[in-house]
Design a protein around this nucleic acid. Structure first.
Length: 274
DNA sequence: ATAAACGCCTGGCGGC
DNA sequence: TGCCGCCAGGCGTTTA
């Protein structure tokens, strides 16, 4: 499941390969992924050049000549660059054909990914980007910001980390790792977090996400980088997917529980505090 | 307003 | 070996 570090890795890889290319055709094989009319999507994109690729939360933002195309990979979205003559494979749902006869292929086994088309006026004013909270490295992300959002809420710490409206970009893997870094139980109600805890939340988010970005994300489950780069952060996971294995800090067995319906890994000793 | 439940979707896995 | 039910899970929508 691509989270911020994996999306950032994809962004960097794609930037090196498709900036400056001009779209000459668009093929959509699974219509529900495109959150605008198909006709509008195809008509708008044809003839536009990719000027830049940005990221906001887990969204890729393709800056085109006169539009912005948003792409969310959700669980299993991947990009490939292929020749226009390559045979279409299973799970390839959207294909952008460039004027140099290379293609950008969107591959998604679960079909959960989405595409939006925006203008410079609507990009941040409309859904989905207008719902996102701050980036983890935004200077405005401070204790006061989190306190204001959390002090009256009963939701669990992990649930709050996964809520994109507070801090954007954190998914299931990194939420577990951030809770471990904070030495807090994932079920801790957020109204119980004191200023030191909130400060730790910010510091741990930066520490975990910066390290994961540096290592090219985590290659686990279905996520592998589409452009041949293999993430290495999976080697540094402290709790995620380590059920039954020993905590590197205290040798206690890592356990798996459910939080908000999601598989959650923690060290019951290091994270007893809640 | 808040929180929980549901639906989307497919492949992999355990059980028989 | 094959079939079945369950699980994974981000997030928009629906329900309580």
């Amino acid at each position: 499941m691509p989270e911020l570090p994996e999306v950032e890795t994809v962004r960097l890889s794609l930037s090196k390969q498709i900036i400056g290319k001009t779209i000459k055709a668009v093929k959509v094989y699974h219509q529900p992924m495109v959150k605008t009319s198909l006709e509008h999507f195809e008509n708008q994109l044809i003839g536009q050049t990719i000027d830049a690729i940005f990221r906001r939360g887990k969204f890729l933002i393709f800056k085109l000549t006169s539009s912005y195309m948003l792409s969310h990979l959700r669980m299993e979205g991947k990009y490939f660059i292929k020749s226009a003559h390559a045979k279409k494979e299973k799970h390839e749902h959207v294909v952008f054909v460039f004027s140099d006869n290379t293609t950008l292929v969107y591959h998604d086994v679960r079909k959960f990914g989405t595409f939006h088309l925006k203008t410079s006026e609507t990009l941040f004013q409309e859904a989905p980007l207008n719902k996102l909270g701050l980036e983890y490295d935004d200077p405005q992300l401070n204790v006061a910001y989190l306190y204001e959002r959390f002090h009256h809420r009963t939701i669990a710490l992990k649930t709050a980390l996964l809520d994109q409206s507070h801090v954007s970009g954190i998914g299931n893997i990194y939420a577990d790792e951030i809770c471990f870094c904070m030495k807090k139980h994932p079920l801790t109600p957020v109204f119980d977090l004191n200023k030191k805890d909130l400060s730790n939340l910010i510091e741990c988010s930066k520490r975990v996400l910066n390290r994961a970005v540096k290592l090219g994300g985590s290659s686990i489950r279905s996520y592998t980088d589409s452009l041949g780069i293999t993430g290495r952060f999976q080697n540094e996971l402290n709790v995620h997917l380590r059920q039954g294995q020993l905590c590197y800090t205290c040798k206690e067995s890592i356990i798996k529980i459910k939080v908000g319906g999601r598989g959650t890994y923690l060290c019951p000793n290091c994270q007893a505090n809640r």
